[in-house]
Design a protein around this nucleic acid. Structure first.
Length: 282
DNA sequence: CTCCAGGGATGAT
DNA sequence: ATCATCCATGGA
């Protein structure tokens, strides 16, 4: 099979796909097999370009946000030791543009789960309910649509190891499938309005809403605070302080990290998770 | 075995 | 507004 190519300067595919923002790409030969929307896709990196099949260069460039001015974004980060170390560690990591529904659904299943298990849940949902596509010699399953998930029962979803999250995923799928929640029309809302709408969905609170805003709605200011980021913030930005409330952390992140706060957050997250050695206790 | 994970909903201060 | 508890499951 012949691969197409697209220029991808200042990009690191492995780092981007391993940073806990997307959960369905599997290593395959020299690259990865996965899906973008309803297309099965294979993609690998060779220096400053991507070789791919299954879709168009335009779709690849948009999905991986190759248009983001990464150097400029990194220059906007605050100058402090923690941020500088994260920036050096995460060179080429980009915040991608995921289809909204699959991003929303996946993060509903992410609550109190490790990345490895979120990936496992995604795989099970796709294998059971998603359409199979043949790509580059192996087959991948695309993420099932909201309508497809909405047809299932809570019991069937629980059989995918979802636990208590099954009820929330099903309820949200039914909201989306019925049109009660029109995810696409929400693109025109302000950040605050969008966050409000997302938080009305079952199983979606501030953290998941911010993830969906950042990874699917291109709101690069959204700053998800999970257990890892909370540790980093308390340790690096509020050392020697006994009580730091959630509200204090939120206020600090909004003002301190600025317009590209979501990128800063993702770099701090990935560095904390994969950086090794510096993972502080408590 | 224990501890913890990219949290949210609910009910009590 | 903040805090406690419960919720399933599996990796480390």
């Amino acid at each position: 099979m012949k691969l197409l190519e697209v220029a991808a300067p200042d990009f690191d595919l492995v780092r981007t796909l391993d940073s806990g923002q997307v959960f369905h790409w599997e290593k395959c030969g020299d690259g990865f097999a996965g899906a973008i929307g309803s297309s099965g896709v294979y993609v690998e990196q060779q220096r400053n370009r991507l070789l791919f099949s299954g879709t168009t260069a335009k779709v690849i460039a948009k999905y991986f946000s190759l248009d983001h001015p990464l150097a400029e974004i990194c220059r906007s980060f605050p100058r402090d030791p923690a941020m500088t170390a994260a920036r050096d560690f995460c060179r080429g990591l980009r915040i991608i543009r995921q289809p909204v529904w699959e991003c929303l659904a996946t993060f509903i299943t992410s609550s109190m789960k490790q990345v490895a298990h979120i990936r496992q849940i995604s795989l099970t949902l796709r294998k059971r309910f998603g359409t199979a596509k043949m790509i580059y010699g192996s087959h991948v399953h695309v993420f099932p649509s909201a309508a497809r998930v909405a047809q299932r029962t809570e019991e069937e979803l629980r059989e995918c190891a979802l636990g208590y999250r099954a009820k929330n995923l099903l309820a949200t799928a039914r909201c989306v499938a019925s049109g009660e929640a029109d995810l696409n029309s929400w693109r025109m809302l302000s950040d605050e309005e969008l966050r409000g709408r997302l938080c009305e969905l079952p199983g979606v609170g501030p953290k998941v809403a911010n993830c969906v805003m950042l990874f699917a709605y291109e709101r690069l200011r959204a700053f998800p605070i999970d257990v890892w980021i909370e540790r980093v913030l308390k340790q690096k930005y509020f050392p020697r302080k006994r009580k730091v409330t959630a509200a204090q952390l939120r206020a600090f992140c909004e003002t301190y990290f600025g317009e590209q706060g979501g990128y800063a957050q993702q770099y701090l997250f990935h560095h904390a998770r994969k950086g090794g050695a510096a993972n502080g206790t408590k």
